[in-house]
Design a protein around this nucleic acid. Structure first.
Lengths: 235, 235
DNA sequence: AAGTGGTCTAGACCACCGT
DNA sequence: CGGTGGTCTAGACCACTTC
């Protein structure tokens, strides 16, 4: 976080979240931001593009930069990295670790994670509980050579905070595939719904910035509780 | 499309799709691209950021720019604008217009579309058929003052091609909310599934670049056939 | 050490919005 | 017409990868 544009983007993101621009629903002009932060125009434009990509603002040529309407309900933001911990801010989230152990990749996993069969993986199955009610089941596989250590305590809080802040992983990009299906019996019990009820699923493949896969996960959501949000900008 | 970086991005996107870099799985260096297209480095970097955002490539500092693995199956790309027409390229898509007429926004619609109750809207209900099988039901509302004309013929092909190429709408951004639920009887018949089977839903709010909403739509997908893909990059 | 992407600056000119 | 964003250039220096 040593670079200017990231620092400034952090500040402005916080300002927006804190409602600092709510009266005008408008950001200062690029020139004003240049003066405030004492950086060049390109740097400000880089900052702004971050805020645009994160869905906070939109730009209108000749007019200014405006706040996008904040989502009213709690959504899982598909554009962000952290699972629930950062997203459903207003709610009360618990995590129950159902299973956690080291395993070896079989042929299928090996192919999907682009590694040799037999590669050591952490297997984690967790139940996420929001406001006292079962919300989702998350099954994750982490490559052990990238995530050398994991325990119950870490898995009970935010794994991603651990990966980023403690292990300092450089996470680069991810593929998320979303679909829905009829829930199986075991999952139905965990999520407290009926067998054959719908289930919303996200299959997540996460890459380091050098392009290596380090996580493959599946999240299964309670169909009545989960709503995913995707904010996109064209240009 | 008069600007350099968009033209170059189009060319490179096509090259990537055509498999031009498949042997090396690597793009030319920034310097090489500067020479090829005779533009400055910043312009090339802008081009590259487009390709990164669209999920085609990833950059590794000190090393180069590499192709991301192309998705194997056909997915609906959440990051792109067009619905199916552009996405499921390999398949055979038909569209049946179930309903098309002008209506007035009621209180609920007016609030969600940020307009006055009574505002004229085009209402379109379409059934999308892929490879001869029902795939999705799309219900859309377009503001008539933005989309002054719409007919059966246009709605039978790609509405978005019409909006962009003919009406020259400047589409800016969109909010997509995804969830799943049990399907109702009428929709079940259209999609040829059983009542109470799962259904995957996307609620889509689309804005012009000046921030005005012009479309509100809901797409309901066949739960066994639809897969949504979201490619994200962190940085 | 050489190659390649990442950050940052300073400045120019264009395109669009609103008055 | 003034204000504000959009595009583009030229050049400098830094950080990481690869050999």
């Amino acid at each position: 976080m040593s670079v200017k544009y990231k620092k400034i983007a952090e500040i402005l993101e916080k300002d927006i979240r804190d409602g600092k621009f709510n009266e005008t629903k408008k950001l200062p002009t690029e020139e004003e931001l240049m003066n405030i932060f004492q950086v060049s125009r390109n740097t400000i434009r880089k900052v702004v593009s971050q805020l645009v990509n994160r869905g906070y603002i939109f730009q209108v040529q000749g007019s200014g930069m405006f706040l996008r309407e904040a989502p009213i309900t709690d959504y899982i933001n598909l554009g962000s990295l952290r699972g629930l911990t950062k997203n459903l801010a207003s709610q009360n989230i618990e995590t129950k670790v159902v299973e956690l152990h080291v395993m070896e990749a079989d042929e299928t996993l090996a192919e999907r994670m682009q590694c040799q069969a037999g590669t050591k993986l952490y297997f984690v199955k967790r139940l996420r509980i929001v406001d006292g009610k079962a919300f989702s089941i998350e099954i994750s596989h982490f490559k052990k050579d990238v995530v050398p250590y994991l325990n119950n305590e870490i898995a009970s809080s935010s794994i991603y905070s651990y990966l980023i802040e403690d292990l300092q992983l450089n996470i680069g990009f991810a593929d998320k595939v979303i679909h829905c299906e009829k829930i199986d019996k075991e999952s139905a019990q965990l999520l407290e719904v009926h067998e054959h009820d719908p289930a919303l699923l996200i299959e997540n493949t996460v890459y380091l910035i050098n392009g290596t896969i380090f996580e493959l996960s599946q999240s299964m959501f309670h169909y009545q509780k989960a709503r995913l949000l995707n904010r996109i900008t064209f240009k």
